[in-house]
Computed example of a mutant assay.
Amino acid sequence: MANPSIERIDGVRCTTGESPAWDALARAWHWVDIPAKRIWRLDAAGKTRAWDTPEMPACVAPRARGGLIAGMETGMYDVDLFDNGSVAVTLLGKPEALGEGMRFNDGRTDRQGRFWSGTMFMDMAAAKDVGRLYRYDANGLSAPVVDGLLTQNGLSWSPDGRTMYLSDSHPKSRLVWAFDYDVASGVPSNRRVFANLAGHVGRPDGAVVDADGCYWTCANDAGCLLRFTPSGKLDRRIDVPFAKPSMCTFGGDDLKTLIVTSIVSGKPEDAEWGGAVILLRPGVQGLADAPCAF
């Protein structure tokens, strides 16, 4: 299958673009630029706007009541963006294990509206497996649900919500795992390897599941998106114009548009596109992420 045409979002270049999320109620995309301490929005009319935050936002998701929930440097926060350019943040929970040099990273809601995000040690060269995965729900911030992670990434859920996916994008790992997921309690179990990118290309960064149950991962450092079937078989590759795609998600009114963020690589051949945010239509439909219900 030929690569779909790519639309670049004008006026946007992120140092570390991450965590695109479609807000169906607002008919808008949000994403973050982590080191710039910035949250971006693209509305249905094609207008972009940015808000500066008091600390680094790593991931965001819309809330059912309006506004966003975010994993940031020091915890999970409630975030409200105002038309006058101001931002209000309220701490929802802070993990005891979130030590110096750490922050939250990838995040997404499950099908029931619980918000999940994991932590990482920011100096990836140190290769410290101190990252942990957390859940935020009616009981607040959970204790660590998964630990021993180098660079937590790739959260997504199967269409029926009964399989949870999680990756570790560190060069020393490059694994995607699947878990059985109890939709009533929000507890994952039976962890097993779903895909090992050592047998493919790149590192498994942010990801999303489509309506067919296939798992799309951003192959960071390889300049492409890889789609795996529910059985873990690679069945499609889409090349993108930057070296370091970071996360993707489906959105738009028909849920057939895929938005992809990227990271500046610093390589001369990546100078034009590195840090861009793009839209493409791969010919499949996505799933509407549940807004955070808590």
Results as ranks from 00 to 15, higher is better:
W216P: 02
P241K: 07
F82R: 12
A195S: 12
K94P: 06
E7Q: 13
A207H: 02
D78E: 11
D253K: 15
T119H: 13
G17T: 04
T109C: 15
G232T: 09
T151H: 14
M124H: 15
Q285M: 08
L234I: 04
D78L: 10
P35R: 03
E269T: 05
D147Q: 11
W40Y: 12
G286C: 11
W157L: 00
T48G: 03
F104E: 06
D221Q: 15
R63N: 05
M1V: 03
L255W: 11
A58W: 14
D147I: 09
T16N: 02
C248K: 06
G154V: 03
Q285D: 01
S167V: 01
Y165L: 02
T109R: 03
L280P: 04
L91H: 05
C214M: 06
K47L: 07
V12Q: 05
A2E: 12
V240E: 01
P35S: 03
G101Q: 00
D78C: 01
Y165N: 02
M164T: 00
Y215W: 11
E272F: 09
R8D: 04
D106Y: 11
H170M: 01
G213S: 03
D23L: 05
S185Y: 02
M124E: 15
E272T: 11
D289F: 05
A184Q: 15
S19F: 04
A45V: 06
K37Q: 14
S142P: 01
A97H: 07
R41T: 02
R203H: 14
D253E: 15
V146Y: 14
W216H: 10
R281S: 06
A36T: 05
